[in-house]
Simulated assay, not measured.
Amino acid sequence: MKQIKWLFLKLVLSLFLLSVAWVLLYRWVAPPVTLHMVQRRAEGGAAAKPEPQIQYRFVTLEEMSPQLPLAVVASEDQRFLMHSGFDYEAIQAAFKRNQSGKNIRGGSTITQQVAKNVFLWHGRSYLRKGVEAYFTFLMEALWGKKRIMEVYLNIAEMGDGVFGVEAACQKYFKRPAKDVTRQQAALLAAVLPNPIRYSAARPTGFVLQRRSRIARAMGRLGGITYVKAILPEDEKKP
């Protein structure tokens, strides 16, 4: 029995050290691929799509317009710079809203979305949510907000098989992520809830309305000054 307990403890310790090493590696190294990308690639192949390949190119925050982090904060997680990975107010509000059975939405933060898309499989089990919380804690402790935002903007799906702002900006606007406008950044953020259903190339009336709401929210937050803590030094100006 003691031997079994010792083997179990060794397994737990090994998994812990491996997970810490994995998260630390991605603090400095761009993820070459994510589990979500692999899943989407497999789905494309299973559906016999003519071009099921993934479009993805990692760029740094210095290579992005500051409108992009502002847009996703305004759209997805306005308390991103204030919370420690979990926005308990948003979770409580989502729970109350979902009790009605209408417009079901989660209260996931940007950090939680990175944990889910980079390190985990997609699903709704309690086990996956628990592991997601664990990786969320690790990223907040080992990465910091700037790196979390940088990875998020690179691995978020912004179209069918289109991952990250550089691939999306090149595909939809024919320009690099560094040169997008506020309205274009808001449009990319507008499709994030469902990038398969909604398209930045052919925005529906709903997407255009959502873009307008996000652009207004970006202004109400005070423009790029609101996210200056995670911006490169040369971008920390209104």
Results as ranks from 00 to 15, higher is better:
H36Y: 15
A71V: 04
S125R: 10
G144N: 14
A47L: 15
M82H: 11
R128K: 12
A71Q: 02
M64W: 02
I110K: 03
G107D: 06
T109H: 13
F135P: 09
E62S: 13
T60C: 06
S75W: 00
V118Q: 07
K116F: 13
L70V: 05
S65G: 00
F86Y: 06
T136C: 12
G144Y: 08
P69Y: 05
L81K: 09
Q78V: 01
Y134T: 06
F135I: 09
S75K: 02
R124I: 10
E150C: 10
L142G: 02
A90W: 03
Y152G: 01
M37P: 05
R97T: 07
V118Y: 05
A156K: 02
G130L: 06
N103D: 14
F119G: 11
F163Q: 04
Y26S: 04
R79G: 03
A47M: 11
A90R: 09
E51V: 11
R97Q: 11
Q99S: 09
F135A: 08
Q67I: 01
A71I: 01
F95A: 15
W28K: 11
A90I: 04
I104N: 02
F135D: 12
F119Y: 07
Q112P: 08
Y152V: 09
I155M: 09
R124H: 15
Q39A: 15
G44S: 04
I91P: 01
T34L: 05
W28E: 15
V162R: 10
A47V: 11
S65I: 01
V131W: 08
Q67A: 10
L25W: 15
R40A: 14
T34D: 07
S125W: 11
G85W: 03
L127C: 06
M139Y: 10
F163N: 01
W143C: 00
N117A: 08
G130T: 02
G159W: 00
L127K: 14
S125H: 08
N117T: 13
K145T: 05
K116L: 13
V114M: 04
A74Y: 03
Q113C: 04
L81Q: 08
T136S: 12
H122P: 07
E76F: 03
P32K: 06
A90L: 12
A48D: 12
H83Y: 02
L70A: 07
T109Y: 00
R79T: 05
H83N: 04
D77S: 00
A141V: 09
R124T: 14
F80T: 01
V59P: 10
S65R: 00
P69F: 03
D77A: 04
E157I: 04
E76G: 05
G130I: 12
G130Y: 12
S108L: 10
F135N: 13
A74N: 00
Q39G: 12
I155H: 07
G85Q: 00
E132H: 08
L61H: 01
H36I: 14
Q55G: 05
T111L: 03
W121Q: 09
